[in-house]
Design a protein around this nucleic acid. Structure first.
Lengths: 184, 184
DNA sequence: TTGTTTACTTACTACTAAGTAAGTACCTTG
DNA sequence: CAAGGTACTTACTTAGTAGTAAGTAAACAA
């Protein structure tokens, strides 16, 4: 991948989290990178192709991270996961899912499919983490692990959204309570 | 308020929830209502003015609803509140906060202020409901009522987002678990 | 050395966006 | 009945938007 291409993807990622997929334009990428908009179209024929690449990168990044955390106790794995969100919160950004879900209906079928894939991957990992963690007495909760995973994910996701509006304290209060509830 | 004006606001509300504030255009409103785009500008000089009206209507609607529920036991009040979200879920839509928070940075200061006002109103009501409900032994939870309220709100909000991507079952699973956790 | 591919730029198109100025039909009120 | 406001339409501007066709400079390959 050329250096420019990488920069385009990372700028698009930033812009999606900052302003939303439908609110950024090629100018927002081409100007700071000092390239022409045609350079973006060279690497990504359409805006959706660019969006798909951003989501794919996020899926790869999740796989990489969870692989790295594999040998830690489950409560520490989940804390690491929370920290990824915390970083976005500190930058004033929301997560990809939180940004793309409201725009879901405006996305191409291919991009929707990728977003779905990302959501499924997140749910799958958190479910596994909770399930194993409960078995190892690292977590204590009632109900199915998958239901609990949905709760955890929705809390993290939405706390970033609320932080946008109510200030970053919202994220910290929610994530702290969240981990406390799991007896972590 | 003229009939057209009311229809414009309710169409804008629908479009914000469906596609997001930055993804709908005046054409999306003017065409189905069979008016010209200038008619929208007559009632709302700018798109932000229209957005502000939508948010104000939501704030009024919350006040009206909660007033109506006032005499019910707190767990039933919260169930009613959940039902408002459930309706949006069944229509495949997200809530206003969930839609506007990702776009927050692209909004005018006046509209941001209104969104903030809406968020504060929601947090205030849920906090009060939980606090009173705990006092009346209708809810059982640890920690401050406001922290818990943030958790509840973020779950409801985000479950609509996840439902978009993963299907409506996500909402039902999350909201059921949510109420169960409160011992409601 | 010549041909090909990569990674762009230049210069453009077609379209859509929000927004506006001026005109008009229809009420309402003195 | 005249004056003025309300609720629009007609017709337009300005400023983007994503996307494209054609050209080019440099690296690489035969």
């Amino acid at each position: 991948m050329s250096e420019t291409k990488e920069k385009i993807v990372s700028m698009a990622d930033k812009l999606i989290r900052e302003k939303g997929f439908n609110a950024f334009s090629y100018k927002d990428i081409s100007e700071p990178l000092q390239v022409k908009n045609a350079a973006i179209h060279y690497h990504f024929p359409s805006k959706m192709d660019l969006g798909i690449e951003v989501v794919e990168q996020e899926i790869r990044s999740l796989a990489l991270n969870t692989e790295k955390w594999k040998k830690l106790p489950e409560d520490e794995q989940l804390a690491k996961f929370c920290n990824v969100f915390r970083k976005h919160c500190n930058n004033g950004n929301v997560c990809l899912m939180g940004s793309l879900a409201p725009d879901y209906e405006t996305l191409s079928p291919e991009m929707r499919e990728k977003v779905h894939e990302m959501a499924a991957a997140i749910v799958e990992w958190v479910t596994g983490c909770l399930e194993q963690g409960r078995k190892h007495k690292r977590f204590h909760f009632k109900g199915s692990a998958e239901d609990r995973a949905l709760l955890v994910i929705s809390n993290l996701q939405s706390s970033l959204l609320l932080s946008r509006v109510l200030g970053p304290a919202a994220f910290h209060r929610i994530s702290r309570q969240l981990l406390a509830d799991l007896g972590a």
